[in-house]
C-alpha cells in the first residue's frame, strides 16, 4: 500500500510538464527515502532523474519498495485536472495494476479521484557517478531558458564554454552566428538573480539545443538553474524542487570527429 500526500500539488503538475515531452513511459520508484524516477529519452541522448524526498510529503506511507510504470502523457493529462492549490495524493494498493491521483481543494469542498492504468516497463537503472565537475554555473533559470530559445532560432547546437571571463553560449547556422556571454554577478539585491561561476578548469562542450530547450520546460520549478560541466561527462542541468528534491537532466555531448 502506498499513499503519498503532497500539499504543494502544483509541484507534481510542474514536474510532469517538464518531463512529458522528453520521456514517454517511465517507472516511478517508491521507497522509504522518497518518490523518484530515472529515465532516458528514446534516443538515449538525454536522461532525467527526479527525486521527491519523503520528508517533503505531508504524509508518506510506502509499505514496501514498489516501481510503477506510467505513461507520462496520460499522467500529465490527469494532473492537469488538479487545481494549482490542490493537495495531491498518490495512492496504490499492493499488487494493484492501477494508481489513483486524488485532488483535494484547499477548503476540502471538492475531492476528485483519477485512476490510471499502470504499465509494465522494463527499464534498467544507470549508475550516475557523483563527479567533480570542471565548472559549475548557477544562474537565473529564466535567463538560461531565454538564451536557449534565442540561440535555437540561429542554430541547432550550442557550444557552452567556461573560462575565467565567464560562461559563453555560442551557436552558428545558415543566417549567421551568435554568442551570449554571462559573467559572474553577485551584486544583485535578490540572490536568485545572481550568476555564480565556479571554475576548476576551463571547459568547452557542444550540445544539441533541442534537448536544452526541452529541459527548460522545468523553469517554473525553480528560479535558479545549475549547469555542471566536465569535459569527460554529460552536462547536468539541475532545477531544485523547493525543499523536496530536484529534477536533473543529463545530456550527452556532441563529439568533434
Amino acid at each position: 500500500m502506498l499513499e503519498l500526500r503532497l500539499v504543494q500539488g502544483n509541484l507534481l503538475k510542474k514536474v510532469l510538464e517538464a518531463v512529458k515531452d522528453l520521456v514517454t513511459d517511465a517507472n516511478f520508484d517508491c521507497s522509504s527515502t522518497g518518490f523518484s524516477l530515472q529515465a532516458m529519452d528514446s534516443s538515449h541522448v538525454a536522461l532525467v532523474a527526479l527525486l521527491l524526498r519523503s520528508e517533503g510529503f505531508e504524509h508518506y506511507r510506502c509499505d514496501r519498495n514498489v516501481s510503477m510504470g506510467m505513461n507520462l502523457n496520460n499522467m500529465a493529462k490527469m494532473l492537469k485536472c488538479a487545481g494549482n492549490d490542490d493537495i495531491v495524493t498518490i495512492k496504490a494498493d499492493d499488487g494493484s495494476d492501477t494508481v489513483t491521483f486524488m485532488f483535494e481543494s484547499p477548503n476540502q469542498d471538492k475531492i476528485a479521484d483519477f485512476e490510471m492504468k499502470l504499465m509494465d516497463i522494463d527499464s534498467e537503472h544507470l549508475g550516475i557517478p557523483e563527479a567533480e565537475y570542471h565548472a559549475i554555473v548557477r544562474m537565473p533559470s529564466s535567463e538560461f531558458a531565454r538564451i536557449c530559445k534565442d540561440l535555437s532560432s540561429i542554430g541547432d547546437t550550442v557550444v557552452i564554454s567556461v573560462t575565467k571571463e565567464g560562461v559563453k553560449f555560442s551557436t552558428r547556422g545558415d543566417i549567421g552566428n551568435a554568442n551570449v556571454v554571462c559573467r559572474q554577478n553577485t551584486t544583485v539585491d535578490k540572490p536568485e538573480e545572481s550568476t555564480t561561476i565556479e571554475m576548476h578548469e576551463p571547459v568547452s562542450l557542444t550540445f544539441a539545443l533541442r534537448y536544452m530547450n526541452s529541459f527548460t520546460k522545468a523553469t517554473p520549478l525553480s528560479s535558479t538553474v545549475t549547469i555542471s560541466l566536465s569535459s569527460e561527462l554529460p552536462v547536468v542541468v539541475e532545477y531544485k524542487i523547493a525543499e523536496m528534491g530536484y529534477i536533473r537532466f543529463y545530456l550527452a555531448p556532441k563529439i568533434e570527429d
Binding site: 538515449h44 541522448v45 544507470l126 549508475g127 550527452a252 556532441k254 570527429d257
Partner: peptide
C-alpha cells in the same frame, strides 16, 4: 562534423 554521443556511453547499467 559533430557526432552525438549517448548517455549509455558514459553511465553504465546498474
Amino acid at each position: 562534423g559533430c557526432n552525438q554521443s549517448t548517455i549509455t556511453e558514459f553511465f553504465g547499467k546498474l
